[in-house]
């Protein structure tokens, strides 16, 4: 995990932990599909995405830009 900038202190009060515990009980149960089937489907989705990106010709491509330049 990552956050830009500020450092994490890890200081947590008892009240905050209690709030978190209550919040976590509100989390709904995970979906019905078994996890391994979900993972297989997610991997397949990336394969489909790779194929559709792969269809784009790179003949006109330059190097990738990692920062938006107006």
């Amino acid at each position: 995990m990552e956050m830009r900038g500020p450092k994490q202190t890890g200081r947590v009060t008892r009240r905050q932990l209690a709030v978190s515990a209550v919040l976590s009980t509100l989390a709904p149960a995970a979906g019905q599909t078994p996890p391994d089937e979900e993972l297989r489907a997610a991997r397949e989705a990336f394969v489909r995405r790779r194929a559709s990106i792969g269809n784009v010709s790179l003949a006109m491509a330059t190097e990738p830009a990692f920062k938006f330049v107006p």
Partner: peptide, 19 residues
Amino acid sequence: HPTAWGAKPYAAQVFDEDA
């Protein structure tokens, strides 16, 4: 104060600065 990012694994996460 907790900054949980909406996610249980970070429910108790606290930072010491503001965005």
